[in-house]
């Protein structure tokens, strides 16, 4: 049972890393970034390039991959998304614009790296697992869980304790007001995009050793993390953490009892939450309104 719990926890943390970026963009920028899964994919390919091809070492490679992904995300905001803010029917155009990035990124990846599966080996010290009695914790999973927690803590500090975080909260509450109070809204938004997509990239880079790195892998991630974000409350950072935990564990235990219907679990949870508590389970605190 405990091993099942830990298994669910690992899934949760990877989900959380992607979902946290998605919810951040929504909370602050009011943009639903459909292409977020593609930044996850970019992160994985950057990591492959840096770790397996260039050979700069695993952890530096993963970090740098996240940064590069963040830069790509900031570019998308700066040169494209920015031009449609405040336009009539903006939400529809957001979907289209970010969706066009899914297509473009998928093909760019295919042009550069081809369609074969790329792989990164994890550092040797992280190969095995720790066993404590019946409990079985793969070392690499422990690193993923720890990274997830660290990111959660770091983001908490950034949002709650820093001046930057205060700006974020101000923009999220009222963009015009924040601007008139002297917050540089455009720069902050680009930065938030960079940060959020970097989180997506980090998640992709960390997943590369344990998943398949192939074009098209971003699409599976986006729906999963969207569900997580909705459950936690759109734009709510902590909600994303709890949402990820719920989905991870519901799947982990659900498959023990109803293996045939695993395909419906997460949608069912999402629909239930929306019907009974549309604002998400945790919509009191957090970045958004």
């Amino acid at each position: 049972m405990f091993t099942q719990l830990i298994g669910g926890l690992t899934s949760s943390m990877t989900l959380f890393l992607v979902a946290s970026g998605l919810t951040l963009i929504f909370g602050v920028g009011n943009v639903f970034n459909f292409a977020h899964g593609s930044f996850y994919l970019l992160g994985a390919y950057f990591a492959y390039q840096l770790v397996s091809v260039t050979g700069i070492g695993f952890f530096p490679g993963v970090l740098l991959a996240a940064l590069c992904t963040g830069a790509a995300g900031a570019v998308m905001e700066l040169f494209f998304l920015r031009r449609i803010y405040g336009r009539g029917g903006e939400e529809g155009f957001q979907i289209l614009l970010t969706y066009s990035f899914i297509l473009i990124i998928d093909d760019v990846v295919k042009m550069i790296w081809g369609t074969d599966y790329k792989s990164i080996s994890r550092p040797e010290i992280l190969d095995g697992a720790w066993t404590i009695g019946d409990l079985f914790v793969p070392r690499y999973d422990a690193v993923v869980i720890a990274t997830g927690l660290l990111v959660a803590l770091g983001m908490w500090g950034l949002i709650r304790r820093s001046r930057f975080g205060r700006n974020l909260r101000a923009i999220s509450a009222n963009r015009e007001m924040a601007s008139s109070l002297g917050v540089n809204v455009p720069v902050t938004l680009s930065f938030v995009f960079g940060l959020a997509t970097a989180l997506g990239g980090l998640s992709g880079a960390l997943s590369a050793p344990v998943r398949t790195v192939t074009p098209g892998a971003g699409v599976e991630v986006i729906i999963g993390s969207m569900i997580v974000v909705v459950i936690g409350g759109l734009g709510n950072f902590w909600g994303a953490l709890v949402g990820a935990l719920i989905i991870g564990e519901v799947t982990a235990f659900g498959i023990l009892f109803l293996p045939q219907w695993a395909i419906l679990f997460s949608y069912a949870v999402m629909a239930l939450v929306l019907v009974f508590r549309p604002q998400g389970l945790f919509m009191k605190q957090g970045v958004a309104k």
């Binding site: 066009s100 473009i104 093909d107 042009m111």
Partner: peptide
């Protein structure tokens, strides 16, 4: 075979330049 980048690019251009 690289139709995705074309369709994506056209979509992007339409979104930016054809606001209605």
């Amino acid at each position: 075979e690289f139709w995705e980048i074309w369709i994506g690019g056209i979509m992007l251009a339409i979104v930016i330049f054809f606001p209605k």
